[in-house]
Amino acid sequence: MKPKSTLEEHSSLITDVRFSPSMPRLATSSFDKTVRVWDVNNPGYSFWTFLGHSTTVMSLDFHPNRDDLICSGDGDGEIRYWSINNGSCAGVFKGGAVQLRFQPRLGKYLAAAAANVVSILDVETQTLQHSLQACLTI
């Protein structure tokens, strides 16, 4: 199948991709340290480019019921909360996030995983609620 359009705005490899649960939006993260939000119905260009990470953005997720909120995590363990409404950074949390996901349906919590630790963050207060560490045996 021949593609109808290409996502040409990232300057490096794409590391993650997520659909918005409530709008025709798609978000991508990249080795180029950016997060981009695309209109699925008109994907020829991104309508938001979020800048601020100092290293590769590894993971991202849309909030399940707040249309304006997306988060991203980078290789240095920084999590950024972004407002889709105005394109600004709504908060920063240091705490590890090679992978991150919002709690489905409710979105009260964000789980962020790095190495053998899973951090559970309260989205509203942007504070660490729990830290779970895996016991590694060799």
Rank of each mutant, 00 (worst) to 15 (best):
M1G: 14
M1C: 13
M1T: 14
P3I: 07
P3T: 09
P3Y: 06
K4Q: 15
T6H: 11
L7Y: 15
L7T: 11
L7I: 12
E8L: 02
E8H: 07
E8P: 00
E8M: 03
H10V: 05
H10S: 12
H10T: 08
L13K: 12
I14N: 11
R18W: 07
F19V: 10
S20W: 08
S22R: 15
M23Y: 05
P24S: 11
L26P: 01
T28S: 15
S30M: 05
D32M: 14
D32C: 14
K33V: 01
K33D: 15
K33T: 10
T34V: 04
T34G: 12
V35I: 15
R36S: 05
R36P: 02
R36D: 04
V40A: 13
N41D: 09
S46W: 06
W48F: 14
W48C: 10
L51M: 06
L51Q: 13
S54F: 11
S54Y: 11
S54C: 06
V57W: 03
V57E: 09
M58W: 05
S59Y: 00
L60C: 14
L60P: 10
L60Y: 10
L60S: 14
D61F: 02
D61I: 05
H63I: 12
H63D: 09
P64W: 11
R66C: 02
D67V: 01
D68R: 02
I70L: 15
C71I: 02
S72G: 13
G75I: 00
G77S: 08
E78N: 09
R80P: 01
W82I: 09
S83V: 02
S83M: 05
N85I: 01
N86P: 01
G87E: 10
S88A: 13
C89L: 03
A90R: 11
G91A: 14
F93W: 07
K94H: 07
G96F: 01
A97K: 00
L100S: 05
L100E: 10
Q103N: 13
P104H: 09
R105G: 07
L106Q: 13
A112M: 02
A112I: 03
A114R: 09
V117I: 08
V118N: 04
L121H: 05
L121M: 07
L121F: 08
V123G: 06
V123Q: 07
L128M: 12
L128C: 09
L132E: 05
Q133R: 11
Q133D: 00
Q133P: 00
A134K: 00
C135M: 11
C135T: 14
T137N: 14
I138W: 04
